[in-house]
Amino acid sequence: MANDKIIVEENTRPDQVPKRIAIFPERISARFETEKPPEKLVMSFPHLIIREVICLQLVVIVVALIALFFNAPLEELANPQHTPNPAKAPWYFLGLQELLHAFPPLVAGVLIPFLVVVALVVIPYFKINIKREGLWLNAPNQTFIVFTISVWAVIILTLFMDTFSVAIPSILLYGLAVMPYFNKKENRFLLWLGRRSLSEWIMIWFVTVATVLTLIGTFFRGQSWSWVWPWQ
């Protein structure tokens, strides 16, 4: 609103303060959305409320069913003298713990989580994430060179560190991302791939790698963090 010229009547007497103030912005700032065409509205009561009530009931029922059939784990009393092997963090941190075995702790434990949080926070403040044009829309040849070099720099680094759990999903996703560049056929899958923007590819990559690492940490790690199969 900084550039808007606002005309407001000043009056310090409470009983004379106007009930409504009209503000006439000199120009519509780009921050605000352009007006949307009118959409169909429904009354919140009952249409929204009924959905909320049913949703609450389903949540309670599902949690109650799980709680009936599966008991929360409880092992022996904590014993600082007796370290279990392996000692695992809660499952949502197992991706990080998995990384800790590949990278130095300062990188895996501090730098990477910090960068992830920063990256998430700044998403809405970058134009590229607002526009989100398909990766190959503008200057596909240049895009291909820059994209390939940067992605393979990461992949080679992870191969160098023996983190195949990161490298393999990255290579597969790279393959998917460049497919529309090579293959111009117009089937639905390729069109869908072609519409993905750089931001979406990065998010898809992040979620895939995080999921793979978490699954490996949860199900495929045994004594001294060695590889085991879940059925072993």
């Binding site: 904590a78 014993n79 279990p84 963090a89 809660p90 941190f93 990080l96 300062l106 501090v110």
Partner: peptide, 22 residues
């Protein structure tokens, strides 16, 4: 909070990471 082996060592793993903050 349950203070069993699972709890103790899981939190140990997590809190050891904090040590590496410069």
């Amino acid at each position: 909070l349950p203070y069993d082996q699972l709890a103790y060592w899981a939190v140990t793993v997590g809190s050891n990471i904090v040590k590496y903050v410069p």
